[in-house]
Amino acid sequence: MCLIAEVLVPLSVLPLGLSVERYDVDVELERVISVSADEPSYVWVWGPDAADFLDAFESVRDTSAVELIEAVPNGALYAADWDFTQDRLFAGVSNFDAVLLECATTTESWRLKLRIPSHSALSDLRRYWAAHGIDSEFDRITPLDSVETSVSDELTESQREALLLALEHGYFDEHRRTSLDELGAELDISRQAVAARLRRAYRTFAELTREQGR
């Protein structure tokens, strides 16, 4: 039975994770369909320090030709000659025929969404990671044939937290009862980071609405 698994692993497992603690950003590996063996890896960085994140790539081993593709409001897209599969985390994913659907940082961890062929493969993946010193917490495991796509499922933990806080504090009211600065103070992040999380949540709403309308 094919499964969808959502997994939390420490920020330190992937090189860019520790940089998240030094910069005011979130990091998301872009999902792309490679049409070339020379296709670079793409990384979205969100937050007020996004356009200054280039230096963080210097800490990534075997990375070269890092390029800022484009800066957007509260974010930036980078390309790098970095083979993610060389990391033990993703080597395990590949070894057990899992497919990486999502990978993005939260406040304290990387959050992965995987499609994996069976419970036995999932158990083998757990053991592989543990044997290589990778702590993993499986937050949710769902049979693929029972997955019902909802906006809540598609949001990251940080996006959901920001969105619910904004709703509870009246940010979406006709006469707005709070501000991005106040929400940022509650979340202990900058107003720009709050805006980025909300914007990414809006994008998820729009993408899911488009998919359901097809």
Rank of each mutant, 00 (worst) to 15 (best):
R199Y: 15
G92A: 03
E168T: 09
D124A: 03
A196F: 13
V43D: 02
E6N: 11
L183S: 14
F96A: 02
V43H: 07
C2K: 13
M1T: 11
D87L: 05
A91N: 03
D124P: 00
E182W: 09
D24Y: 08
E39H: 12
A193W: 15
G92D: 01
D81Y: 10
R140A: 03
L114C: 06
R127C: 05
E161R: 12
R22H: 11
T209E: 14
C103A: 00
E6R: 09
C103N: 01
S41T: 13
D49P: 00
V7W: 09
S36G: 12
D97W: 08
D181M: 12
S41D: 08
V72S: 03
A79V: 02
T209N: 13
F84T: 01
R203S: 04
D139Q: 13
L155M: 09
T149D: 14
I189M: 13
E39N: 08
A56Q: 03
F96S: 00
I69G: 02
D124K: 01
S36I: 11
L198T: 13
Q212E: 02
R140T: 06
N74D: 10
A50N: 08
F172R: 14
W46A: 01
E161D: 10
V45Y: 04
T142Y: 00
E70W: 03
R115V: 05
L125P: 04
A162V: 05
D173E: 15
L112A: 00
A56Y: 06
S64A: 13
A98P: 00
E102K: 09
D87C: 08
T204Q: 10
R203D: 15
D188L: 15
V20D: 02
G184K: 12
D87E: 15
S19M: 07
E21W: 12
E174C: 14
A195P: 09
L89D: 01
D87K: 06
E161W: 15
S64I: 11
D173R: 12
D38P: 10
S41N: 09
S59I: 11
D83W: 13
E207V: 07
I116K: 03
V35N: 11
S123G: 04
T63S: 15
L164C: 11
I4A: 07
R199Q: 14
D83G: 04
R177L: 14
V66Y: 04
Y23L: 03
E174K: 13
I134N: 04
E157I: 06
L183T: 10
D38T: 14
R127S: 13
A80P: 03
D83S: 14
P48Y: 12
S179W: 14
I33K: 14
T178F: 14
A196V: 05
E174W: 15
Q86V: 06
P143H: 09
L54Q: 08
I4P: 07
D49M: 05
T85M: 09
D97L: 08
P40G: 04
F96H: 02
I141N: 07
E148N: 01
E157V: 06
R177W: 10
A121W: 07
H132W: 04
S34Q: 09
T156N: 06
F90R: 03
P10Q: 05
E137M: 11
L180I: 14
L198V: 10
E70Y: 01
D62F: 15
R210S: 00
E207C: 06
S179I: 11
D181H: 14
V93P: 03
R200N: 02
P10C: 05
L183C: 13
E182Y: 10
V27S: 01
H169I: 10
D124G: 00
Y23G: 01
V7C: 03
F172A: 13
R115E: 05
A65V: 11
D145Y: 10
